[in-house]
């Protein structure tokens, strides 16, 4: 993939343009257009089934792994459509990383969990340094520095999720997608992840799907509210600064949702 570094004059990290996603003949989301600023945190919220995870997964072509999935429209990453014919999805995923809902460390050592992604992507530098740095960044180093050779699966759920964040940043992506990264964690682990996300914003652009309204309000700069239409396709209702969405929503639906009247 050739990425044009000049095409991002507006400070945009990534932009979806009239995106539709289909599973077979079913349209899961329709006409999504979103502009994501660099070094911002954007929360995607909405009721279950509104397609916010589908939208998120479209940003790094994870939907390619579902045989029936098809994406129409464009997602522009540094000026290039990541769905263009000549684009290698492997390269897209290296530059746009992802953290999943359920922590999914590999059945390898803590060290290997972090090192593996960097190694397969041709990292040539000092691996020990990279692993330490990434674990520091993910606020996990102090807890695991004495047991790097233990299995990643031996950690607690919150630690596993931070390990997954560490392995994601070890490949130095530009954007990190997070699919309800704290929903499987207890409240204290959740707060640590949120702190971490705010910290990561300095270097990365973050898109995060969340079911947790307070989390969106606490942790994000921008919020996109999705809803499901009568044809069961998800669509974007409102996209704005998070303060705006939570204090002065333009749409009645948004207000109803954030005040807990449906969803």
């Amino acid at each position: 993939m050739t990425i044009n570094h000049n095409g991002s004059a507006a400070g945009l990290a990534v932009e979806a343009k009239n995106m539709n996603v289909y599973y077979g003949s079913f349209r899961a989301v329709k006409d999504i257009s979103l502009k994501i600023e660099r070094n911002s945190i954007t929360a995607l919220i909405g009721p279950s089934g509104c397609g916010k995870s589908t939208v998120l997964r479209s940003f790094n072509r994870m939907n390619d792994l579902v045989p029936s999935a098809r994406v129409e429209g464009e997602i522009l990453f540094q000026g290039n459509n990541i769905y263009a014919e000549n684009v290698d999805p492997v390269e897209v995923r290296r530059r746009i990383g992802m953290v999943f809902q359920k922590p999914n460390p590999f059945p390898k050592s803590i060290y290997e969990n972090v090192a593996w992604g960097a190694r397969i992507n041709g990292f040539k530098g000092n691996m020990d340094e990279l692993v330490e740095q990434s674990l520091h960044h993910a606020a996990l180093w102090d807890e695991v520095k004495d047991k790097l050779d233990q299995s990643g699966l031996s950690l607690s759920g919150g630690q596993q999720q931070r390990l997954c964040i560490a392995r994601t940043i070890a490949v130095k992506p530009e954007i990190i997608l997070m699919d309800e990264p704290a929903s499987a964690l207890d409240p204290i682990a959740t707060l640590r992840i949120e702190d971490l996300i705010r910290e990561l914003k300095k270097e990365y652009t973050i898109l995060i799907v969340t079911h947790n309204m307070q989390q969106a309000a606490r942790a994000s700069d921008y919020t996109a509210f999705f809803n499901m239409d009568s044809d069961r396709a998800g669509y974007l209702v409102e996209f704005s600064e998070t303060d705006e969405i939570f204090t002065n929503p333009k749409h009645e639906l948004t207000e109803q949702y954030i005040t807990g009247r449906f969803g």
Binding site: G97, N104, N121, C164, T168
Partner: peptide, 21 residues
């Protein structure tokens, strides 16, 4: 586990790298 397969792909691995790991 499908979660591990997706985790590997999300780090920019090719199919062969995912299979090996």
């Amino acid at each position: 586990p499908i979660a591990e397969i997706q985790g590997a792909y999300a780090l920019g691995s090719t199919r062969w790298e995912m299979i090996r790991a």
